[in-house]
Design a protein around this nucleic acid. Sequence first.
DNA 1: GCGTAACCTTACGCACGAGTAGGTAAGGTG
DNA 2: CACCTTACCTACTCGTGCGTAAGGTTACGC
Lengths: 205, 205
Amino acid sequence: MLKRLPRVVREQQMLDAAVKVFADRGFHAASMDEIAEAAGISKPMVYAYLGTKDELFIACLQREATRLMETVAAGVLPAAGPDEQLWNGLRSFFTFVGAHRDGWRVLYRQARSEPHFAGELAGMRARIVEVVAGLLESACAAAAVPARPGDFVAMAYAYVGAAESLADWLADHEEEDPEHTATRMMNFVWVGADALLQGKVWRQP
Amino acid sequence: MLKRLPRVVREQQMLDAAVKVFADRGFHAASMDEIAEAAGISKPMVYAYLGTKDELFIACLQREATRLMETVAAGVLPAAGPDEQLWNGLRSFFTFVGAHRDGWRVLYRQARSEPHFAGELAGMRARIVEVVAGLLESACAAAAVPARPGDFVAMAYAYVGAAESLADWLADHEEEDPEHTATRMMNFVWVGADALLQGKVWRQP
DNA sequence: GCGTAACCTTACGCACGAGTAGGTAAGGTG
DNA sequence: CACCTTACCTACTCGTGCGTAAGGTTACGC
């Protein structure tokens, strides 16, 4: 209360508080007063350091998104084979979500529903989908399985959606083990992809 | 403009307008004035017929959710075998989303992000997940594949998430064909489930 | 030890939007 | 034609919450 802290520290405290309040209340229902109070500071300080409500929200998004991406990237790097890379990536992803549940809620639920911010997030998501689609494509090319380009993107959306759904579930269930969730997703991907690579398809009757 | 319409007609017009405005702006950013204007009526009429903003939003949710459920149920019914049922259900689902994009956006994006309404939706979603988990379980039991009960729920979340992700993509891409999307999802489910039923699993290194 | 820059506060202006009061007119019913 | 019910409106009140003005206090360099 009586401590005067340097700017960088306060900024992080404010962002922590903002992420929590945004996650709990939603963007509009969250008030700057509540965020300031949760950060243990008065409102004008928030404006002085992080700008308007919109700018604050974007700052939250950027911090959480960057942390997430960097965590996953760092997890993937030391791996060798494709299955190990995938496994490490998924494990990093779900571990991160489990450890930053509020951050995930803001990224996945709040940002997508506010048309003003959805664009930014959709872009990030699209890049992830592109990466996944690229992986599927190279895997199919290597196995000489025929497929149309659009199919990869669609499949990638399905996989990404499945992972997000599991992550979202994880975010709401304190008792679930992130690593276990990652194993489930790995099974889901690996088994399905394996079948796809063998050229199995379903045809409408 | 000068026509005095019976209540039931106006109510539907108001709900149509409300769904559109909620989908475009988000719950909080949508104003009752804008909804009233979009419905070609004055604000007090909206309050007279459909109550407060919260009640109006819930009315939107209920109408859209009911329509969706009934459409899918009606699609599934006339089918015989399990794969035909699944195919008909998916086709009905994606066709509905393609034809009611705004409704989907309200259900999937808006309702989930407002903590006040998320409960209702989460319940509906949980019931769908239960149904899917039940299908998976009976399929595995029939094939004598061993699995823990929790796994079915997790798998169901993954499948439901994949379908939602494809639906969401469809909602934003006017040019996509719902039936084609349903085919992709069917492939995704059928091929993966088939592999699972053969007891294929991935084990961590 | 004193200036000054950074940290922090109380207390407000102001706009916007939910919800309402109170009234008008159209169309049916006796 | 008198009446009542239903559809519909204009014009407000009032709370809430964003953003700010103006001023106080602590640390730190010199």
